[in-house]
C-alpha cells in the first residue's frame, strides 16, 4: 500500500540551538543546578571567602557527598538504605579497633560489604520493604558501634598515618578529596557505561520489564546495597583516619545530608530517575551552603535547621509530588461544598 508516503514518527533533527535545548531537557539535574546557582550567588555576595578558601569547601563537599554517591545507587533502584550513617560509624570503629592499619581498613571495607549483603537479603529474599529493613539495620549497627567501642571513641593505633592522611598529597588535594573524586568518576562511569549499572535504571524504572528482559534483578539489588555499604564504609575509614579516632556516634548528620544531596540532585525516591552527577551537584550546593554558614558564624544547630528545610523542600517539590498536590490541595479545601448551582 502506502509505504513510500510513510508517516512522520521521529522528530526533526534541528540545529545547534535546538540540540542544546534537547540535551538540557533530557537532564534530571535542573533543581540541583538551580539551587547551586542560588547558593553560589548568595555566597558570592555575602561570604566570598567560601570560594577563595575552596580547599575547605571541597573538603566539606567530599564529606557530605561520598555517602550520598553510594546511596544514589540504591535509590536509583527504588530502594532506600537508611543504614548508611551507622555503617559509617561501625566501620570506623572496626577499623580503629584493629592495630594493623592495612588490616583494619580491609576489615572495615569488608564489614561495609557484608552490611550491604544483609540489607539486600532482607529486601530481596525475605521481601521486607527496604525502608524498614535498613531502619532496623540502622538501630542494630548503632548499637553494634557502641558495643565494639565500649561506648567511647577508639583511638587509631597508627596516628602518624592519620595525620599524614589529612595533608594534601596531590597538589592541594587531600586524600579525602582524591578518593571522593575517584569514587564519583567510578560511580558515574558505572551507571552510565557499565551494563550492570545502567540496568539499575531498569530495575527502578520498570521492574516488571526488567524481569521480562531477563535482567538479574535480585543480583542488581544485591550489587546496589553492596555499593552503598562499601562507600559508607569508605567514608568511615576516611573519617577515622582524618580524626585519628573512631567515634561510635559518628555520622548522625550524614544521613540527613546525604539524603538531601541525592534528592536535591534529582534522584527520584521511587527509583528509575536521577544521576550520580546530580548528586554531586546536590552535595556541592550543600557543601558551599554549610561552609558559607560556618564562615558567617552561624551555629551548627542552625545549619542543621537549614539543611533539614532544604531536604523537606526537596522531597515535597519532587515533580511527581507536585503533580498530585494540585489535585489533593484542591480537594483538601473544596470538600462537600465544592459544587455550586449552575446558572
Amino acid at each position: 500500500m502506502s509505504q513510500a508516503q510513510g508517516i512522520q514518527l521521529g522528530q526533526e533533527q534541528g540545529g545547534l540551538v535546538s540540540r542544546i535545548r534537547v540535551t538540557i531537557a533530557r537532564r534530571t539535574e535542573g533543581r540541583a543546578l538551580a539551587l547551586l546557582i542560588l547558593v553560589a550567588i548568595a555566597t558570592w555576595i555575602t561570604e566570598p571567602t567560601a570560594f577563595t578558601a575552596w580547599e575547605v569547601t571541597l573538603g566539606r563537599v567530599a564529606l557530605i557527598g561520598l555517602v550520598a554517591l553510594g546511596l544514589t545507587a540504591v535509590i536509583l533502584m527504588g530502594e532506600l538504605d537508611l543504614s548508611v550513617a551507622s555503617t559509617l560509624a561501625v566501620c570506623g570503629v572496626v577499623m580503629a579497633s584493629i592495630d594493623n592499619l592495612a588490616l583494619g581498613v580491609v576489615a572495615a571495607l569488608a564489614v561495609g560489604l557484608i552490611i550491604g549483603v544483609v540489607n539486600a537479603f532482607f529486601v530481596v529474599v525475605v521481601g521486607i520493604n527496604s525502608f524498614i529493613a535498613s531502619l532496623g539495620m540502622l538501630f542494630f549497627l548503632r548499637g553494634a558501634a557502641f558495643v565494639i567501642s565500649n561506648e567511647e571513641p577508639v583511638r587509631l593505633a597508627s596516628r602518624d598515618a592519620g595525620i599524614a592522611f589529612g595533608k594534601p598529597f596531590l597538589g592541594p588535594l587531600t586524600p579525602r578529596m582524591v578518593i571522593f573524586i575517584v569514587a564519583f568518576i567510578a560511580l558515574q562511569v558505572f551507571v552510565t557505561r557499565v551494563r550492570a549499572g545502567r540496568e539499575f535504571y531498569a530495575v527502578g524504572g520498570n521492574r516488571e520489564a526488567a524481569y521480562d528482559a531477563g535482567i538479574p534483578v535480585r543480583r542488581r539489588i544485591f550489587t546496589g546495597f553492596m555499593i552503598s555499604g562499601f562507600v559508607a564504609a569508605l567514608a568511615g575509614v576516611i573519617n577515622t583516619l582524618e580524626r585519628t579516632a573512631a567515634d561510635p556516634t559518628a555520622g548522625s548528620t550524614v544521613l540527613l545530608a546525604s539524603f538531601a544531596a541525592a534528592i536535591i540532585g534529582g534522584v527520584l525516591l521511587t527509583g528509575g530517575r536521577g544521576s550520580i552527577f546530580g548528586t554531586l551537584l546536590g552535595a556541592t550546593s550543600l557543601g558551599i551552603l554549610q561552609v558559607a554558614l560556618t564562615l558567617t558564624g552561624v551555629q551548627v544547630d542552625v545549619q542543621n535547621i537549614v539543611i533539614g528545610l532544604v531536604l523537606l523542600l526537596a522531597v515535597i517539590t519532587d515533580p511527581n509530588s507536585l503533580r498530585t498536590v494540585v489535585g489533593s490541595a484542591r480537594s483538601l479545601f473544596q470538600g462537600r461544598s465544592g459544587s455550586h448551582p449552575v446558572g
Binding site: 525502608f131 540527613l256 525516591l269 544547630d301 542543621n304 533539614g308 523537606l312 509530588s321
Partner: peptide, 18 residues
C-alpha cells in the same frame, strides 16, 4: 504532597532538634 514519610520526618527531626 505525597512525600515519603521517612524522609519527611527525618528532615523535621533535624529542623526540630536544631
Amino acid at each position: 504532597f505525597k512525600a515519603n514519610a521517612v524522609i519527611v520526618t527525618l528532615s523535621t527531626t533535624f529542623i526540630g532538634l536544631g
